[in-house]
Design a protein around this nucleic acid. Structure first.
Lengths: 242, 242
DNA sequence: TTTTTTCGCTTACCTATGTCACAGATTATT
DNA sequence: AATAATCTGTGACATAGGTAAGCGAAAAAA
């Protein structure tokens, strides 16, 4: 049941950097177990210090931040291969929560072992920092989108991102990828109201650019979507896998 | 002229974690030089791969991202102690540009030496990752603010942040800190128009909360500003210094 | 000194997006 | 089955914030 890292199904994907044998061995020791969670499970909670970190083996989730007034900002959609809990692992406190949207399978690591990673395997420590840098890069993009773009551009940008990531993870079938979220989730990610998000999606649908239905997203005209999003580079970033 | 790391004026500040002697020695070797730049200098350019990384010794700057349509998103204000170029250093490409607002003094490091840092001094590698995590944490906050809050809350949040950081860097004199930016910079940081930013600042001024004039920011009522910003924790984060 | 540019500030007006309210479809609960 | 809850999809209306234009004051350039 528990997968050995050398058989990890994610490792072959184009989204991830190749491993050295040594690294695989290390990860296998670093990995303390595997975990299945149901939709709705809170994996990590804002402002808490979890003793465990995770890598998503399968399933999807949501990083979000709750505000005092009850609003919610979705920080990112969580995909297979994502490493969860770096902030808690390094800083000792999460700035956001992570929740499972579908059922998920997770590789489990111990927070306390991070130190050994830095001491004994610099390659892996570098990979971890690389992951943090990729996240920072993404958040800069997100900030620019949410701060400066119109609703149509925002929605197009988000779905373009999703689609590109899905492609790199080999999740596409006939230009369709799983997208098991609610419109409210997307709205909270983009700083838009539910109603306006809905109308904007309607526009994109009517123009024949895409269809999002029953948890599946189909992009008919990827090029046009990219243009609407004013996307600079749609080259997917290759990142390390933990 | 060139400061030896063991005499670094920043190291004693409450904003930063203490160093081990070993780390200071390492940083001194890691540091290849020092650099003075004039206001307006572009230290790093978006999408480029700089061979150099910097730590700000003194002066202030701006991280920003340019969009295709000519808009600009200010990602963060750059303060003394900030490490600049981590994305280029690790990922090989900057997601944003960094520009000097005042004249600045910078410690210069070689991108190529980062590897040696991971190989020979895990403590410093950990510090680097810590910095990345702190930045990720901040960007999550920023995203939530820009995505969910009103103009008044946004402005209050930003100035509260500035003030708290300044305090930790011992830059306060009579509730006043240097803030050498233009209203347009703040507007671009918060996703607001210049006019609306101006009006919002006017409101805060009229209410006697603050005064921002001639490059100096005075907070008369820090508590009220925090309330307006709906700030959760105003406890400054202690971070490593590179 | 004069001229030009930049910056802060204000007024008048406009529009993208938010809020409210309701309706049908679907899924969970009884 | 019936009931309730959740989600998508609309229309009518309200408003926070954007756009345009201009005016001093100060700084930079001539």
């Amino acid at each position: 049941m528990t997968i050995n890292c050398k058989d990890c199904p994610l490792r072959q994907l184009s989204a991830f950097e190749p491993f050295k044998k040594e690294e695989i061995d290390f990860m296998n020791r670093f990995k303390t177990g595997q975990m299945e969670v149901q939709p709705g499970t809170h994996l990590l909670v804002q402002a808490s210090k979890s003793p465990q970190l995770f890598t998503v083996l399968s399933g999807m989730g949501l990083r979000y931040k709750s505000l005092e007034n009850g609003e919610r900002q979705v920080i990112n959609f969580v995909f297979p291969g994502d490493f969860i809990g770096l902030q808690a692992g390094i800083m000792g406190e999460m700035g956001h929560s992570v929740e499972a949207t579908t059922s998920m399978t997770l590789c489990v690591f111990n927070r306390a072992d991070i130190w050994s990673l830095f001491r004994s395997l610099p390659d892996r420590a570098y990979a971890l920092t690389h992951l943090a840098a990729v996240e920072e890069h993404f958040l800069g993009d997100a900030l620019a989108t949410i701060g400066q773009k119109s609703a149509l551009e925002k929605v197009a940008w988000a779905l373009c991102q999703i689609f590109t990531r899905s492609a790199a993870l080999d999740l596409l079938k006939n230009d369709t990828c799983p997208f098991p979220y609610k419109q409210q989730d997307l709205a909270d990610a983009l700083g838009l109201s539910l109603v306006h998000t809905n109308k904007t999606l309607g526009r994109l649908r009517e123009e024949g650019v895409l269809l999002w239905k029953d948890g599946n997203l189909t992009i008919y005209d990827r090029h046009k979507l990219g243009e609407l999003a004013s996307i600079d580079t749609s080259v997917p970033i290759v990142r390390p896998l933990m």
